[in-house]
Nucleic acid binder design. Structure first.
Ligand SMILES: [Mn+2]
Ligand SMILES: [Mn+2]
Ligand SMILES: [Mn+2]
Ligand SMILES: [Mn+2]
Lengths: 219, 219
DNA sequence: AATAAGATTTAGACTAGGCTAAATATTGTT
DNA sequence: AACAATATTTAGCCTAGTCTAAATCTTATT
């Protein structure tokens, strides 16, 4: 059984490994964990002693098989609790992340599996992120950032990269929700803003927005 | 916001105050918390600095108003989560306590209140203990220990004093569940065992059992 | 009223998880 | 190849919460 802090580090390393496959640097991890590089070095040594990560001084860190399994288990719990809060307790999608940050550390395999069953084995959390099953299997979907689509392309809004309250409230305000069809009407190269069609209306969105919205492109 | 450890101390003091109204002693608290007296002294000083308890050296400790409010809030959460686990996730009453010990420390007033609503504002947890409402109001019922009833008296089984898995499984095995009618057929003075009628059958139970079962006597 | 037993507090130490400042390694640029 | 900038680690310190052993207070018994 691992501590809350250890679990949070493993989760952060897991997420950063997408971007830094060859090893997650101390500074990258420090930024993600909102802590100092020296604290990261200390913790990474502890994780290494427990064989949760592979660590070579100055060379960054990578999850071991056990570390990866643990990280995925925490992510599974986080996302299941988010679904619970939204589906059963009337929370909106911008309110659930911080509470899930607490609930993801509750230790009981039976609780996790019963919760999963109670929720009907959901495949995605309220922000469109996939929920690993009890064996830790993810299904990865072919999603792209809206910012990377071409003029004229269209697709379905399937997820958000930034789960902050602020961003989610912006989306709510503009009636951008998961499942909606989106088409790129025009790209403005100067500021990289986009004119999109959604809800049968034209809407101009900035680069900041398009870089944080995942789209499953049509065809 | 208080730490997990502080919350557990407050809860323990709250429970012990029933028994030791004039002040909870360091040793009593140490036993309840399964820790050492010296650790209790340290923590009690911290709680006192935060005005959660009134503490006079060598004289024991009492909850302040704020301490009491906090303790009741934790107990409310503990019992609501126990109801959730039993009612919604198919847990049995002997499996929920340890998980509720974790869940009771999740910090979100909205979560607690939405959970309460979702469960239909339950009045008692799976062990018959009353659940405080959002304002911290308990309803106390006139329950007695089965051991304190007289020969010939009867009543309804309404709660357990010991919530351990072992005791609850003993009750399950003997089909003693909350809501059942119980009558004392005969008291054996030698070993203080009781012959009771329950489920239309006679059953002999030891003093250990009768001292841990709450009955609401008839009339 | 004195004293012994028991309860409680204090002193000093330890671990987990942080931080700052200083030292050292790596890397990019001349 | 040398040097400067940047990244990383180390050293030393801090707090929360725990422990053991020693000191001190309270209480029960003579
Ligand atoms: Mn989240
Ligand atoms: Mn977390
Ligand atoms: Mn309980
Ligand atoms: Mn607890």
């Amino acid at each position: 059984m691992f501590s809350l802090s250890e679990e949070n580090y493993l989760k952060a390393i897991f997420h950063l490994e997408r971007k830094y496959a060859g090893g997650v640097s101390t500074n990258a991890l420090a930024e993600e964990m909102e802590t100092k590089a020296s604290s990261v070095t200390d913790m990474v040594k502890k994780l290494s002693d427990k064989d949760l990560v592979k660590y070579r001084k100055y060379q960054g860190v990578q999850l071991s098989e056990q570390g990866k399994r643990t990280a995925i288990e925490v992510i599974r719990k986080h996302r299941l609790w988010e679904v619970f809060l939204v589906e059963k307790l009337n929370f909106s999608w911008d309110e659930v992340h911080d509470i899930a940050e607490q609930l993801e550390h509750i230790k009981s395999e039976k609780l996790t599996d019963e919760l999963d069953k109670f929720l009907g084995h959901p495949k995605r959390d309220p922000h469109g992120d996939p929920i690993p099953d009890a064996e830790g299997n993810f299904r990865i979907s072919n999603k792209m950032l809206l910012a990377d689509l071409e003029e004229g392309q269209s697709g379905i809004c399937v997820g958000v990269k930034d789960s902050s309250t602020e961003f989610l409230r912006y989306l709510d305000k503009n009636e951008i929700t998961l499942g909606k069809a989106i088409k790129i009407v025009q790209r403005e190269e100067y500021d990289e803003s986009l004119l999109i069609k959604i809800n049968d209306k034209d809407l101009r969105i900035s680069k900041t927005i398009s870089k944080n919205l995942f789209i499953k492109p049509n065809d």
